[in-house]
């Protein structure tokens, strides 16, 4: 089975969405993908970050553990998983940054607020539906798995 490249792009404040991104990454690895995890950099001010419990420590940690998406990642990716918090507005700068990193024609999955899947489709991506009837982490894992499998199938 040929390796396939999957990039997981996420935005997380307190680490909840990061866990979903990691679950998606595990799913993609289970489907024998090479993975890259990329974090959308923070746009909030230091004061705002300090005002929410757990945000600053996770922000500092994640800033150390992850890099931001680069142009080379979009070119490398054959599949994409986008993970953003479910409460986020699709017009927020973080989501816009996320969408800006994507390349049309790629297979993708959307973990986040309602309408994120349509936003990805509007960006020219082929969006895999999410699994239903499972918990959030399992849904994310399956999203990573399915994107890897679909990206591999799309090659043939």
């Amino acid at each position: 089975m040929q390796d396939v490249n999957v990039v997981i792009v996420f935005y997380s404040r307190t680490g909840t969405t990061e866990k979903m991104a990691l679950a998606a990454a595990v799913g993609a690895v289970q489907a024998k993908a090479n993975i890259r995890l990329r974090r959308i950099p923070e746009t909030a001010s230091d004061e705002t970050i300090a005002s929410v419990p757990g945000w600053k420590e996770n922000h500092d940690r994640m800033s150390w553990e992850y890099i931001a998406p680069r142009e080379a990642d979009a070119a490398w990716a054959e599949g994409l998983v986008v993970a953003i918090p479910g409460w986020m507005n699709l017009s927020s700068p973080e989501v816009k940054r996320c969408l800006d990193t994507l390349t049309e024609g790629k297979i993708a999955a959307a973990i986040g607020p309602e309408g994120l899947d349509r936003a990805l489709m509007a960006a020219g991506l082929i969006v895999e539906p999410l699994a239903t009837g499972v918990d959030a982490a399992e849904c994310a894992r399956l999203a990573g798995f399915r994107v890897a499998e679909a990206a591999r199938a799309a090659r043939r």
């Binding site: 595990v26 690895v29 289970q30 090479n34 890259r36 995890l37 150390w64 992850y66 890099i67």
Partner: peptide, 11 residues
Amino acid sequence: PGKGFGAHGHR
């Protein structure tokens, strides 16, 4: 110091 390998997968 302070550097390393970010999240990556193995199988």
